[in-house]
Every structure is written in structure tokens, then in C-alpha cells.
């Protein structure tokens, strides 16, 4: 129990392009891991392999000792893997409250009900309120999501994913596109996440990575270049070369 997520020999190619090369790593329960790497390194692809959006060419994915590789996306969510989207993916015409109602109704196995009101479960409504308070978005409850500022939408994106109560949370560039004045809101929200949750954060902003992660995996061309503590990673010559190189382009 509580082994967390173990990935063994995960490989994926799109036609001739190999975007995941024999990836092996573990995300123990409660870990805070960052996945960094240049654009096109295969970070999002890796996350999609974990959530079941993409099928791997080969390899194994184990959650708490169970092989979840054959499960479809919905079943993996129920098993406990959830991911935020790199590009905000919300129900734009629904209010924030309605957005959050959906994953909770789904988690509680209620979305097949036809003859009951969607807002008719008192504890679900209470949980929505609590979740909004946690992320400090309660004042936006009744606004349609399309009317929110981008930074606020990123918080809703996070809330929507937290609402499924995952064991493993994958954050794909949670602060991308958020003005720097608002990104601290997201950092704080991540820091407040339950400590038994295992978090994998994909991020370009090294400042943010250092604030939330205690282990970093560097992905280049679909392969793990190195893995270590933040200090080990920044002092690594190959990583420096990569990032300085990238900065010059």
C-alpha cells in the first residue's frame, strides 16, 4: 500500500518520432517532483501517457502495486491519477460552481441521475464551497468561467483537478501565461496541497520549481537526462549547457 506511482520502461513514438524513450521512474506517495526540459522534450506526452490520453508503445505503469496500464482514461481517474491541462480546458459557459460540481458529482458516481437536481446534494455543495475557499476563488462562484481573468482560470483549472481527489496530481505548467503578479497565488495553492498527495509538476519557471519541488527530473528528447535534488540539477554541467544554450536561441 502507498507505494505511489511506478513507471517502468515507458516508450512512445509518433510514427518515426520517439517522444518517450524507456522512461523509468517512481513518484512515491507525498513526493514533490518537477519535470523540466526544453520545448518539445515530451513532457506533456509523458503526462498524457500516465493519464491514459495516449497509449504507450511499450512499458508499464503501476499505481500502489496495481498495473493500471490497460485502464482507460476515466478508469485511471477513478484509480487516482489526475492532471491539469497545459492550455486551460474548462467548461467556459458554466459558472465556477457548476464547473466544480461536475468532477465531484462524477467522483461520487452521481452523473447518471436524471430525476434529481444537480445541486441537490448538500454535502457536495458544501465541498464546492470549501474548495473555492481553499483556492480563494469563492467570490467568483457564480460567474461564467469565460468571464474570468486568465490567472483566475488557472486556479479553477487546479480546483477542477483537485476536486477528483487524486492520489497522484500532475500539473502541466500551472502558471504558464499567468501574469507574474498573480503567479504567487498558484504557488501558494500548490504549497497548501495535502502532504500525502504525490505531485508531478511540469514547469519552465525555475523559480517556481525550486519553491515547490524537492526532486527534479530533466527530460530531453524523450529521455531522462538526469534526476536529482534541485541543487544537484542546477550544478550539473549538461543541464547548465542545455539551459544556457536554450536561453541563447
Amino acid at each position: 500500500m502507498g507505494d505511489g506511482l511506478a513507471i517502468v520502461g515507458l516508450t512512445k513514438s509518433f510514427g518515426g518520432l520517439q517522444v518517450a524513450r524507456d522512461l523509468t521512474l517512481t513518484l512515491p506517495q507525498g513526493s514533490r517532483t518537477a519535470l523540466i526540459g526544453p520545448n518539445g522534450a515530451g513532457k506533456t506526452t509523458f503526462a498524457n501517457l500516465l493519464t491514459g490520453v495516449l497509449k504507450p508503445t511499450s512499458g508499464k505503469i503501476m499505481l500502489d502495486g496495481q498495473d493500471i496500464g490497460s485502464l482507460n482514461e476515466a478508469a485511471r481517474v477513478r484509480a487516482g491519477i489526475a492532471k491539469t491541462f497545459q492550455i486551460t480546458n474548462l467548461f467556459r459557459d458554466l459558472s465556477v460552481r457548476e464547473n466544480l460540481r461536475l468532477p465531484i458529482l462524477e467522483r461520487e458516481g452521481c452523473t447518471h441521475h436524471i430525476f434529481r437536481r444537480a445541486d441537490g446534494w448538500r454535502d457536495i455543495e458544501a465541498e464546492i464551497t470549501e474548495l473555492m475557499l481553499e483556492l480563494n476563488i469563492q467570490s467568483l462562484a457564480d460567474k461564467p468561467v469565460r468571464d474570468l481573468a486568465y490567472g483566475q482560470q488557472r486556479l479553477v483549472e487546479l480546483a477542477l483537478t483537485l476536486a477528483v481527489k487524486p492520489k497522484v496530481l500532475i500539473l502541466d505548467e500551472p502558471a504558464a501565461g499567468v501574469p507574474s503578479t498573480e503567479s504567487h497565488l498558484i504557488v501558494e495553492a500548490i504549497k497548501r496541497l495535502p502532504s500525502d498527495l504525490s505531485v508531478l509538476i511540469i514547469e519552465h519557471d525555475m523559480q517556481l520549481v525550486f519553491e515547490v519541488a524537492n526532486r527534479i527530473i530533466v527530460l530531453v528528447n524523450g529521455a531522462i537526462l538526469m534526476e536529482g535534488t534541485p541543487d544537484e540539477v542546477v550544478t550539473n554541467d549538461r543541464v547548465r549547457e542545455l539551459y544556457l544554450g536554450a536561453a541563447h536561441v
Binding site: V53, A74, V77, N89, D93, L102, R107, L160, V164
Partner: peptide, 12 residues
């Protein structure tokens, strides 16, 4: 609104 998001929250 978004079928991909619905899948991501576990809806069949």
C-alpha cells in the same frame, strides 16, 4: 463544453 475535460474528470 469540453469532452476532453470530461474524460479527464472521469466521465464515461
Amino acid at each position: 463544453g469540453s469532452a476532453s475535460r470530461m474524460r479527464a474528470i472521469g466521465t464515461p
